[in-house]
């Protein structure tokens, strides 16, 4: 991958990958940090990266693992909830509906949330979700069904309590 190719990929993929990781972990700034760090690692290992559509999946998986690791360290009290690079992203004010959906997503079990984000937000077919998360297709289908049902209840409750 040459610099021009990387730059084009970064500019185009960064917003959507931040969006997807944000939906998975519920923290926009942390998602932005982790995706950026994943791109740094991708460039440092560019010879290992394939040139097909697997690049986005690599960034998504790396960023998600980073987010989980950071969350884990914060839980242990070893790391203040600061940002690794200390740099803020620039974005507009949050949309209330989106905030409600992301909040509801956060209430789902992690496996269901990840399946829903990959399928409904990242537009991955069920088989690709299965490949990226390392579980059988049937398990992904079950997670999607249970996740949507739980999400319906959560959004319904939120609408009646809001």
């Amino acid at each position: 991958m040459d610099p021009a190719e990387f730059d084009a990929w970064y500019d185009q993929a960064y917003p959507r990958l931040v969006h997807q990781i944000h939906a998975m972990i519920g923290d926009r700034e942390e998602a932005a940090d982790c995706v950026q760090e994943a791109f740094v690692r991708a460039w440092s290992r560019r010879r290992d990266l394939s040139s097909d559509g697997g690049r986005d999946a690599w960034i998504r998986t790396t960023a998600y693992r980073l987010a989980v690791s950071r969350w884990r360290r914060m839980v242990r009290g070893r790391r203040d909830p600061d940002r690794a690079l200390g740099l803020a992203t620039h974005e507009g004010p949050p949309d209330e509906t989106r905030v409600a959906v992301v909040t509801a997503l956060r209430a789902l079990p992690e496996a269901q949330r990840r399946a829903i984000v990959l399928h409904h937000l990242a537009d991955l077919p069920v088989a690709e979700v299965a490949a990226e998360t390392g579980v059988p297709v049937g398990t992904v289908k079950a997670r999607l069904a249970r996740g949507r049902t739980a999400l319906a209840t959560l959004l319904h409750e939120g609408a009646h309590h809001g």
């Binding site: 950026q36 409904h120 999400l151």
Partner: peptide, 15 residues
Amino acid sequence: ALDDLRQPDHVWPAL
């Protein structure tokens, strides 16, 4: 709701 969430807000990278 998920469809509405599908379109990302534009985010400018910090770097």
